[in-house]
Amino acid sequence: MTNQDTNIPGVSKEEFLQSVRESLGRDNTPPAQPYQRLLETTADLESQAAEIRQRVQENLPALLDKLADMAQKGGWNVFRAAGGEEAIGYIETLARNQEAARAVRSGQEVFDQIPVDDALRGLGLTITPIIQNNATPRRALREVIRRADIGITGADYALAETGSIIVLPRRGLSRLVSLVPPVHVALVRPEEVLETLDDLFLLRRLEYHQRGGEMGSYLNFITGPSRTADIEMTIVEGVHGPKEVHMVLLG
């Protein structure tokens, strides 16, 4: 806490916890039955993670089908690409249909495998990789994102149970790329696919342990377009986030 907060209002933690204990009618005693999940060690989590990876490996074709199905139900336009070329072809068609002039993309590693930049430039679009460096101030990058017609990102994980992609704070990834432009394209590779919510949270907890208690500043699920039903329960897509979302699933 900084100096300016020495006199911050509110009550101290001790005072607050004491009043909670009084309400519960007992002293400061930890749970008699410890919470099982919080006792798990890194080794416990590692062995569970190994099981998860094995299960995903063994069921990959079925999981990809499930992911595509659930993503579609969740509002994604799903395109299953046999390879990088097909994926790029899909994005080109999309850019043409949208009559897009400007695209932004994250600086994730997936773009080394699927080089969309040249293809889109070939169509006459400008494409800006959003990578923070001292030369480009944050505000300027934000303006580029704001003006973009399409935002393209990868995914850290894709979840078959919910049809979601998961994005984590990796270098070269601004959250705004998947949120601000009216069209979002997410590239998903088979190695990013997980089966259930439990799988995802277990892997996150493992990483938290491995990194000595560092969770990363955010974890976002994205499932379909931005939507609202706040006026007369009528569903409107694209209120603050994208109106149209595409999942390009490799494999």
Partner: peptide, 21 residues
């Protein structure tokens, strides 16, 4: 809904390496 469009989880402020936050 099976899940909402967004589930957003925040742990602390942006870290030195983060692009935003």
């Amino acid at each position: 809904q099976r899940i909402t469009s967004y589930v957003s989880m925040t742990t602390g402020p942006r870290r030195a390496d983060d692009e935003d936050g």
